[in-house]
Nucleic acid binder design. Structure first.
Lengths: 325, 325
DNA sequence: CCCCATTACGTAGCACGTAACAATG
DNA sequence: CATTGTTACGTGCTACGTAATGGGG
């Protein structure tokens, strides 16, 4: 039994039992993969795949059981390699962060600056995507951790650590009538066309919930994936914007006013998503601590053992907040 | 990184950093091991051993960290192989049981008979030893499971599942004056010389505790490791025996009387010891179920996740019983 | 001077790639 | 007939064993 054979097997399964695709993904020849799978089956004394003619149709029950264990083993092997890399050169390596627009654009820049100063030799990758893509990147091991407000707490594979809380704000041109209304109400907002996020982005679900709880139907005339697009259309006078309040930049957005709406829409929690069984190098923990000082290495390592529910309790969040907010 | 290199490394560490001994244990050449260790260090980019001149003095801190992870990985690899063997030929293989005299001599014979009938192709090994040896055999992977009344619950590595409870009995010649004393008391027993187990065997600690709780000092004239020896000396009239009541065989011991003493000495629990992270083939679970019907496969697999304390609670034993009984 | 690890060197095995082949839809 | 997996075959790498070398206690 060779580690390579197990890697081949894993890749074949990942490629929906397509040996050709697996070989391509592994940058090796197709017959080589086929052969090693065959040898592995021979050594283990059982068929891992149910074949119909020449093509692999499905995993045998035994194959499925073993594949699960083999995944664990390969993860462990990769962890050992990462640990060795970290131990041999603690300030070198790669850090890949999967994140959404809002975090990448407004939250991370200062953290990235500090990090690059502290660890100039670490190659930093920022992968932007939708919350779902971000979550998938981490679960599939393509990124070291994720940062997003949505979708991270949906799988027990990930540890979704609360990073910080934020609310929404209303974005209006300086001369807009809403500037005069105090206190701001959902009803007042509903009188105007609205420009905000598409569903599943940056707390959009919380906005919808707030309106529908009051029996209101907002007139959303434009849905965008990020605050920059929203600002552009607010400037064109298309409607009033609702964005994350961290996305308002007082220095640059001097032609717009931000009216805090945290009280209306409730607060959101941006979470840090880490694979439960993943080893992270020292600099990754340092990055996280720069981002959220309460998430020390010690704190994270203790959290790994907890269920998501226990975690939320430990951090003092009820079920309401740990939902789709 | 090859599995073989990791196996070599593990063996070198097991052999107290002696490469020559490790090579011998692995049935391979000494330079081969030396070379592979070197290649592994090169690939990982760090020294695993602190060398003084040519000999390995100790593990480096990094080496120690990695060695722990590597142990986990190799265990996982071996587990996969065992699982494959079980899946490919569920009624073939080897079952090694580590146990003490009492269990091997009085408890296991009928179970073994049934098992051999059901699984004629399984090679069954019974390894007898002291409770400490028995425990060590399982923790070191030399046996699949252990059966003993003592020493198994001392390490969290093992799952010590309660198998059955038993008490002691007093063994006396047919004409002995104690036959007439009802009810039996500790004081009455203390009037006679006693023949029983050496310390650490078959509930001996419970006997001592019972006497000392009453402020009594028994006159133990012979200490033996097993009931057969004890019976022999009781027959010679050396004293009265105190043995596990399962060790009294009414058919064969017709010249001796057994007086139940469970009430005097309390009950003991014989436990089944399994490595928490170990995979057992189907026939092993069947053996266990023949031995103790309440220990189904399902029950055991659920127990693996529990701490020893949770386990004792689940089985309804308090701290008093889970002690050295 | 003995013990032990490393280096040197030759060999045998095996993983891999190219090419040809088989089978399925 | 296109796609995919298996068999055939040659090659280059490498793990391993034997032998020689180097260092400590």
């Amino acid at each position: 039994m060779k580690l390579q054979q197990l890697r081949y097997l894993r890749e074949v399964i990942r490629c929906n039992l397509n040996i050709t695709a697996a070989a391509a993904a592994l940058h090796t020849s197709q017959p080589g993969v086929s052969r090693q799978i065959g040898l592995l089956e021979e050594e283990l004394g059982l068929r891992l795949f149910r074949r119909s003619g020449r093509s692999l149709k499905q995993l045998t029950p035994a194959g499925a059981i073993l594949a699960r264990q083999i995944d664990v083993l390969l993860n462990q092997a990769e962890q050992i390699q990462r640990m060795a890399a970290d131990l041999s050169a603690p300030d070198q390596g790669t850090l890949t962060i999967a994140t959404t627009h809002t975090q990448a654009r407004y939250l991370l820049p200062p953290v990235v600056s500090r990090f690059r100063e502290r660890y100039p030799k670490v190659r930093l990758h920022l992968n932007q995507g939708t919350p779902q893509q971000v979550s998938a990147m981490v679960t599939q091991g393509e990124a070291d951790f994720a940062l997003a407000t949505e979708a991270l707490e949906h799988t027990e594979m990930l540890l979704a650590l609360p990073c910080y809380r934020w609310g929404h704000c209303l974005l209006v041109p300086s001369e807009h009538p809403l500037n005069a209304i105090r206190p701001l109400t959902l009803e007042a907002i509903t009188d105007f066309p609205i420009v905000t996020y598409i569903f599943g982005f940056t707390g959009r679900s919380r906005l919808d919930a707030a309106f529908s709880d009051r029996g209101l139907t907002p007139n959303v005339v434009l849905k965008a994936a990020d605050a920059d697009v929203i600002k552009t259309y607010v400037r064109l006078g298309l409607g009033v914007g609702i964005i994350a309040n961290i996305a308002y930049e007082p220095d640059k957005d001097t032609d717009l006013s931000a009216l805090d709406a945290s009280a209306l829409f409730g607060c959101n929690i941006t979470r840090l998503g880490i694979r439960r069984d993943d080893f992270l190098p020292r600099y990754a923990y340092d990055f996280i601590e720069m981002l959220a000082p309460h998430l020390s290495r010690e704190c994270i390592e203790q959290s790994r053992e907890l269920s998501q529910q226990q975690l939320d309790e430990a951090f003092g969040f009820g079920a309401a907040l740990s939902g789709s907010g």
